[in-house]
């Protein structure tokens, strides 16, 4: 081919292409310089020599579907051209991430699997703007995420909006202590119930009971006794007041990580939970009276609970 003929050939014809295969089997042909903008594809070409033909197409990760790939290639096409101003790039990026949240999330995953860090950062920033200032519940709704945190994780001091740090730690420890106590009490109750269910009546008594002659009086009595016992227990919970605020020496340890206090199991039944809440409320009220006196410092900053400045 003569030089004059070569000059007529369009530059597109001289471009080299790379073959890419998505997880669903679809194959795309992409300009080499655009494809090479993705580190993962670049590695495949350099290390394994794949992508040069349709039969040896580069297999893309599962998260990269054809729709995401075309978006990613658009991004690469724009950014691989040198000489663009920062203003142009910024403007392109802003428009590029103006897509629905679900798509943005998929794009972030796809860019991450192709090791395309600039795009991961860009989509990450866009997702951060969506999250900013929203409550965990709102974020869950937007991203369709499961609410799989345990009660313990949700009972963390950070969630308690009305409390100061020292007070939070006290309440948190109280919660931990009371939950343990209640669960132990619950276990004891179960043992007691099992004992009570053991039948020690004679054969004659059992026969008369079957024949309907009564004989169930004793049984009824134990049942009502047990009911009364439970009622009494709910009506008179152990007083939180009896426990001094700083009784526990480890409460003083401010240098320790404050979230490791309540390392407990879940699964409290509603009655136990109610009882626990009542006790904590009583404790909180008592704590409040002391707290309010020492709460506001001279400069409007929250002062620590008395006895916490142990240095």
């Amino acid at each position: 081919m003569s030089e004059s003929e070569l000059a007529v050939i369009k530059p597109e014809v001289l471009k080299t292409y790379i073959w890419l295969q998505c997880f669903d089997g679809s194959i795309q042909q992409v300009e080499e310089e655009v494809a090479m903008f993705c580190p993962m594809i670049c590695q495949e070409i350099v290390k394994n020599g794949t992508g040069s033909s349709k039969n040896h197409a580069i297999a893309l990760p599962e998260r990269v579907n054809p729709a995401n790939l075309s978006l990613i290639l658009d991004y690469c096409r724009f950014h691989q051209i040198t000489g663009r101003s920062n203003m142009e790039r910024k403007s392109f990026d802003e428009k590029f991430v103006r897509i629905e949240t679900e798509r943005l999330c998929e794009l972030t995953s796809a860019a991450d699997s192709l090791q395309l860090k600039p795009l991961v950062d860009l989509t990450g920033r866009a997702l951060a703007r969506i999250i900013e200032g929203k409550t965990p519940e709102e974020i869950r709704d937007i991203f369709h995420l499961p609410d799989d945190l345990t009660e313990e994780e949700k009972l963390e001091p950070l969630k308690n909006i009305n409390d100061g740090p020292a007070r939070i730690r006290l309440l948190n420890r109280l919660y931990a202590k009371k939950r343990k106590e209640l669960q132990e009490r619950h276990k004891l109750k179960d043992v007691q119930v099992q004992k009570e269910q053991k039948d020690e009546r004679s054969l004659d008594e059992l026969l008369s009971f079957i024949n309907g002659d009564g004989g169930s009086g004793g049984r009824k009595a134990t049942k009502s006794k047990k009911k009364n016992k439970r009622k009494d227990h709910v009506e008179n919970p152990p007083k939180a007041d009896s426990e001094p605020v700083n009784a526990n020496p480890d409460m003083q340890d401010d240098a320790e990580y404050p979230f490791e206090d309540a390392d407990l199991d879940d699964g409290l039944d509603p009655a136990m939970k109610e009882e626990l809440d009542r006790e904590v409320e009583a404790f909180a009220k008592r704590l409040d009276s002391v707290w309010k006196e020492s709460h506001i410092g001279g400069n409007g900053s929250a002062r620590r609970f008395p006895g916490f400045n142990h240095m």
Binding site: D112, G124, A128, R129
Partner: peptide, 12 residues
């Protein structure tokens, strides 16, 4: 969401 992608969000 991949850990790195999630961290990119958290970093922002």
């Amino acid at each position: 969401l991949p850990r790195d992608a999630l961290l990119a969000v958290f970093h922002s």
